[in-house]
Write a protein that binds this DNA or RNA. Sequence first.
DNA 1: CCTATATATCGGCAATCGACGATATACGAA
DNA 2: TTCGTATATCGTCGATTGCCGATATATAGG
Lengths: 115, 115
Amino acid sequence: MLGTSSPCSELEDQRLADLGKSLAHPARIRILRLLLATPGCIGGDIVDAVGLAQSTVSEHLRILKASGVITGEISGPRVCYALNPEALSLLADFVASLKLPANDACCIPEPKDAP
Amino acid sequence: MLGTSSPCSELEDQRLADLGKSLAHPARIRILRLLLATPGCIGGDIVDAVGLAQSTVSEHLRILKASGVITGEISGPRVCYALNPEALSLLADFVASLKLPANDACCIPEPKDAP
DNA sequence: CCTATATATCGGCAATCGACGATATACGAA
DNA sequence: TTCGTATATCGTCGATTGCCGATATATAGG
């Protein structure tokens, strides 16, 4: 039906929501903090730091990786996780746009009702 | 200065996660966009714009209000919703901090001192 | 080869989320 | 007052999430 009607809303809303979801759990925030603070962080240390089961931490890492916020590179028997802050640029820009005075940042959401 | 050294970043992690959760749904992103693009205060128009049931939209508005991202002021028979971008400052600062002098030195510091 | 380590995946369970319709409440207007 | 509009809340349902233990996979080393 609609599909490509909206130039910049539908898809971007979903993408922004995915990025928000990747930040929507304290364990994932903590993981990001650890990656920021640790020069060359690896998984085992993350498990200790967050205090959850290894499988649970692995799942959080999977979510962060899926949203692109972190990268995981196999390095021998371990995996090197690293921040990929560029993935959050879209979210950062959106949040920043909310602080600007009332302007039409992108496009005005249109009612579903079509003429 | 800000905090008290930070014996409990756990609270801040939770606060950041709550803010992230408020952005973790495309309908809520869309509502924020609408509030940004609309000069006046609106209520019922939001329901039309997101295309969900009125009770569902009200729930999303409640979530946004609970996290402080928007404010709702009673204005006659309607409610005037408005952005409160300051509530997102904590999240914005956190995201920005991830981009800073980040650890460019990826990965493990070599297994040099292997036993 | 076999063993130990590190990470990923599977199965299951309780809790939360998102959606809806129905209903309740608050206010202005007639 | 009563009526109509606008928003909030309630009850319920299916889907998803977060957590765990157990197991699978991959690699380094003996």
